[in-house]
Design a protein around this nucleic acid. Structure first.
Lengths: 224, 224
DNA sequence: ATCAGGCCTGAATAAGTGTTCAGTTCTTGA
DNA sequence: TCAAGAACTGAACACTTATTCAGGCCTGAT
């Protein structure tokens, strides 16, 4: 054989794969999952349609990886925010706020990852994504319960309820389209975080304090 | 003209229309929206595929009407339950419980109406459906606020958050599949209702009382 | 009984996209 | 420079379902 994959080629292949995934992500962020079609994504990534299939066996695999990718980033952000908090309750508040801020700053992408109809089956990937995020939130709730800050409860159910509340109210079809007004965005984040904390049993007064703390750090609402 | 629509014919036409809608509903309840395809629905309704188009201009219209139909029933059930309650807080609890019980007893249908991917555009109909239900819940929250039972808040946002929490935790992909165990179903309804009430600011202790009251009336979890 | 006119049928059509693959281009080592 | 082998291209294909429509059937008035 006179051809071997040299390091340079391996790097280029990896780069191309990333480019395709990035193109898919951009497409989803711009137009939702409906815009993630092989031909357009290929054009964005500067390859031919057929090339996509050298990197992903099918569209379902491409989208599944996209979902996994975004989820991984999201989970990392949640952990970072929660771990930086001084205690379990404020960690929970930070986690919730992080999710809220992220979905609001990338609404189309979030909607696409979470719930937008797709013509291929990505339920497994979506399920895994939800499991990861919900598991993290459940863990934070549990920590607060163990610290005596919250009443005992079914943390898994509570976690999925919290996420459902965040998603529906912030990126669901009824969500007000306040893309412009960053003040209103911040209000929405605060309101929903407050609801979430109270839902798991934080007293109203204390919840308000936690919300202020969690939103204070000045996270910008623009840019993931 | 030697042919006029006689009353008998008019009735038959109406019956056929209902049969098609009912067939669509049955299909959705059994297999989700993915099972609502023209040919199978036509077979269920004992008509030919082409006949469906004499009653509904397109599949999108058929599904939109299906969604509207189910929503209308749901809204009526919510109002009935809430109006029968002794006060605004228990009315809210009754409304939430009603939604929870209904989605649990018809999970596939609920998922189909709410969020399942469909190959035609039914966003308008789904939006209207959510608006109706969320509006009703928002009204109930507002009543409780005005009665001084809850802190002032953005009731529209709260309502959509509550519905999101119910849906995600009860019929979302993470929802445990307790179809069999009616005891667990009841627990889930109670837990989620409790979360919802606390979320809008009902004190924990009082919320627990309201939940017991709301779930008590012995609604069966089987059969819408 | 008859026929005018709508109603129903269901096979054929249409249309959109994911997927394939024969041919072309590029990369590597000699 | 060249040959082998891999990667890339993009037009053609495949597949699924919604939708259509020409022809047959039924209903109602005469």
């Amino acid at each position: 054989m006179v051809y071997r994959r040299t390091h340079q080629v391996v790097k280029r292949l990896a780069a191309r794969r990333s480019a395709i995934l990035a193109a898919a992500r951009d497409a989803a962020a711009e137009g939702g999952m409906v815009a993630v079609q092989i031909a357009p994504v290929a054009i964005r990534a500067n390859v031919a349609a057929g090339t996509v299939y050298r990197y992903f066996p099918s569209k379902a695999d491409l989208i599944s990886e996209l979902i996994a990718d975004v989820s991984r980033d999201e989970l990392a952000a949640i952990r970072r925010a929660a771990d930086a908090a001084p205690g379990p309750s404020s960690a929970l508040a930070a986690a919730v706020t992080t999710v809220a801020v992220h979905v609001l700053s990338q609404r189309k992408l979030a909607w696409g990852i979470l719930a937008e109809p797709v013509d291929v089956d990505v339920t497994a990937s979506r399920l895994a994504s939800r499991r990861e995020i919900a598991g993290e939130i459940a863990g934070r709730i549990d920590a607060a319960v163990r610290a005596g800050h919250l009443p005992a409860q079914d943390t898994a159910l509570a976690a999925s309820a919290l996420l459902g509340a965040l998603h529906e109210s912030l990126v669901g079809p009824l969500a007000p389209d306040n893309t412009e007004d960053s003040g209103k965005l911040r209000d929405a984040v605060q309101t929903v975080t407050l609801l979430a904390l109270r839902a798991v049993g934080v007293m109203d007064a204390r919840a308000r304090g936690l919300v202020v703390q969690a939103v204070l750090p000045g996270k910008t609402l623009v840019g993931a």
